[in-house]
Write a protein that binds this DNA or RNA. Structure first.
Lengths: 212, 212
DNA sequence: ACCTTCAATATTGTTCAACAATTTTTCGGA
DNA sequence: TCCGAAAAATTGTTGAACAATATTGAAGGT
């Protein structure tokens, strides 16, 4: 007995982990057998992932793992800028999420020398999730986590994890420093620079591998 | 043969139209019979609406039409401020959506004397959808339309449509005038005032009817 | 070899009936 | 009236079946 709520989470983990390549088709019968659930239950889980943008559902052609295009990346970063920068700009300095920003950043810096991009990437993401939590908005947090998952898929298409994470830990440090020493507005400005640079980095990688 | 994609849309229409009161339970068997679909198909449609926040799904207790609480209203307006104000502040004056803002506002003002709050409300919503479209972001537009649907449910709980719409057509006019005559930043400031006033109006109505 | 056409095959979309899991209701007893 | 347990109702999941559509592949013509 596999609750369908759990199944969707499990599928999301597998997809985000890169087990199913972006763009690859997800056969109903194959996955139903593999996870030992019925096709109906699997389809309910697919709906959830589809609404979250992790998989694409085309009628009578089944679902595929989403494969973000350049246009998607541009849009994802637009959302990030709107949500993250606003959350930071209007944040209160004493907000508990600031502490989580500190911790996440510390962890990223800790694993930086070992070049453990998996961990660095996760800590990096935790840093930005903490920024979003500054806004105290469940709905913004949910939207953000959706686009963050999509962005992970975009990262999966790029096989140069170093260029994606290494330069940005430093920039995160700059954001936190700005917030503490110069206030929310300065931090938001710093964050916007971060996001523009990060977007350019991803788009560059996409361009180098011949569109997307 | 009723495509489940269509079924979700149809259900959404009925819910938004207020046919099923916020908070009321949606029986699988009853609705399956009424729309002449199987329970499985209905459940897939429910998933979609659940992801959009229009219905609430509690395990083994089925789905109910969402019934926004005060906390939900606060969060919804937070999202509106973040998305709408940013879209407007960073908008280009020549953007085609500006024309749609004009049209929507004209329609709202047209039906204002007749006190046709249904139409005024729809035109009002079109005005704000146009604002969001200034950002040219499919994902922000989607998030916005989700919270807009939720807000409609909150409106349904209030039986004083005049107080919800009448004062705000004027304020929308002020936003558009500010955009044309004083630029995006001034318009965004005007819009923020609008949203704060609108939120206060809704929260007041909620308080008057004894929490939510 | 290179298309078309069309049938065969495979996959998804939907329904139905059954049963398991859980909640809600009913009812008897204190 | 209140409580608890049996009964009923509802949701969760499965498996099989068939319909609708897409994909494949083979036959035939150029």
């Amino acid at each position: 007995m596999v609750p369908q709520r759990v199944l969707a989470d499990e599928l999301r983990q597998h997809i985000i982990a890169g087990e199913f390549a972006p763009g690859s088709r997800l056969s109903e019968s194959a996955l139903a057998e593999r996870f030992d659930v019925s096709r109906n239950t699997l389809r309910e889980a697919f709906r959830v992932l589809s609404e979250q943008g992790l998989v694409e559902h085309i009628p009578h052609r089944g679902v595929s793992v989403a494969s973000p295009t350049i246009a998607d990346v541009v849009d994802i970063y637009r959302v990030r800028r709107v949500i993250e920068c606003t959350a930071l700009r209007e944040s209160e300095p004493e907000h508990p999420a600031v502490q989580r920003m500190r911790q996440a950043l510390a962890e990223a810096e800790e694993h930086l020398p070992a070049e453990d991009w998996q961990r660095v990437g996760s800590a990096n993401m935790a840093f930005h999730l903490a920024i979003v939590d500054l806004a105290d908005s469940p709905r913004l947090a949910r939207t953000y986590s959706d686009v963050a998952a999509e962005l992970r898929l975009a990262f999966l298409k790029i096989d140069d994890p170093r260029s994606l994470h290494e330069p940005f830990v430093r920039k995160n440090r700059a954001v936190l420093t700005a917030l503490v020493e110069r206030g929310p507005q300065a931090a938001a400005d710093e964050l916007e620079r971060y996001l523009i640079a990060s977007e350019r980095s991803v788009l560059g990688a996409f361009a180098r591998m011949g569109n997307g």
